[in-house]
Amino acid sequence: MFEAKLQQGVIFKKIVDAIKDLVKSVNIDASTSGLSMQAMDSAHVALVSLKLNENGFKDYRCDRPITLGLSIENLSKILKCAGNDDTITLQTDEEEPSSLKFFFENQQASKISEFSLNLMSLDSESLGIPDTDYSSVIQMSSAEFSRICKELSSISETVEIETSKESVKFSVQGDIGAGSITVKNNQSDKDVDRVDLQIDQPVKLTFALRYLNMFNKAVSLSSTVSLNMSEENPLMVEYKIDDLGSLRFYLAPKISD
C-alpha cells in the first residue's frame, strides 16, 4: 500500500509546472522516507532532483519501495483538474502498479475528484550526484534572480556569474552590446532584499540563460533561491519547499572550445 496526502495540493501542481518543460517522463521513487525523483533533460546538460519528506505530508504510508514511471505531460493534464485549495492524495495498492490513483478534495470536503493515471515502464538511469563543497553559495530572492535572468536573456544567450566576497555579478555580451547587474551582500530583514553570500573561493562561470529561465518556473515554490557554485562543477539551483523538501536543478557550465 502506498498513500501520500498533501494538505496543500497546489505545491504538487507547482512542482510539476516547474519541471514540465525540462523533463518529459520521470521515475518517482516512493520509500518509507518519502518521494524522490531525479531526471536529466534530453540534452543531458541539466538534472532535476526532487525530494519530498514523509513528514511534510498530512498522511504518508509506503509499505515497500515502489517506482512510479510517469509522463509529466499526462500528470500535468490530471493535476489541472485539482483546485489550488484542494488536498491531493496519491494512492496505489499494487506492488508493481500499472496505474496511480489521484484524489482531489476541496476544503469543505464537499467535492471529491478521482482520477487514475496510467504508469509507464521507464529505463532508470542510475544517476548519482557527487557530494560537493560549493565554494560560492548565494542566497537571494527567487523573484529577483528570475527577473535578472529574464532581463539579461533579451541581450545574450549566456550569462557569466562572477562572485566575490562582497557581491555577485551577472554579465552578458551580445550582438547589440553588453552589460552587467551586480548584487551586493545585503542583510536585510525583508526576504525580497536579502542577499546572503558565502564565498570561500570566488568563481566565474558561464551558463545558458535558456535553462536558468526554465529553472525559474519554480519561483512560486519559494521566496528565496540558493545558487551553489564551484569551478568546473555544475551549478546547483535550490528551491526549498517549506517543511516538505526541496527542488534542485543542476546545470553544466558553458566551456570555451
Partner: peptide
C-alpha cells in the same frame, strides 16, 4: 565559441 558539457558521466560517477 562556447559549448556545453554533457553531464551524463558526471552524474554517473557516484
Amino acid at each position: 565559441q562556447m559549448s556545453q558539457k554533457n553531464m551524463t558521466d558526471y552524474f554517473k560517477a557516484k
